[in-house]
Structures are given as C-alpha cells and as structure tokens.
C-alpha cells in the first residue's frame, strides 16, 4: 500500500486505526482518504486496508 506517497508493506487485516498508530500519526487532527474517498472517523476501526490501497493522511498547516 501507499501512504502519503510512500510504498509500505501491508500486513493482513490492518485497519485504518492500526495503520495510523503503526505509522506514528496522531488520530486526532487528521483526515484519511482511501483511494480518493474519505474514510469517516467512525469507520477507522472497521476499514481494513489492502495491498493495492492508496492512502492519504492530511492535517491543517499554516497557509494563506
């Protein structure tokens, strides 16, 4: 799977929650997109990732 542009190994049955924890992302203050679709927070524990998935984890930063 690809997380924020970086290719990563995808162990079986990895949920979005576990991925965030494993990769060191805060679970607060981020939004997750899976294959161009937003994953609602309520679905983090039940959404299982696959090898071919493309994941974006975003947050707010300073900007004009």
């Amino acid at each position: 799977m690809k997380i924020n542009g970086v290719q990563k190994q995808c162990p079986g049955n990895l949920t979005v929650s576990e991925m965030l924890q494993q990769e060191g992302y805060a679970s607060e203050g981020v939004a997750v997109e899976l294959n161009m679709e937003i994953v609602p927070k309520a679905a983090y524990d039940t959404t299982v990732l696959k090898e071919e998935d493309v994941i974006e984890v975003v947050r707010f930063m300073g900007g004009g």
Binding site: E23, G29, A31, G62
Partner: peptide
C-alpha cells in the same frame, strides 16, 4: 484565519489548532 491542508508527518508534530 486561513489554513492549508497538507500531508501529515508521522513524526508527531504540534497541532496548529
């Protein structure tokens, strides 16, 4: 106040909010 949306770093950076 305006903000931008960017890829998060995995290195637990501070939250601007």
């Amino acid at each position: 106040i305006t903000l931008a949306v960017r890829r998060a770093n995995s290195a637990g950076e501070g939250n601007i909010l």
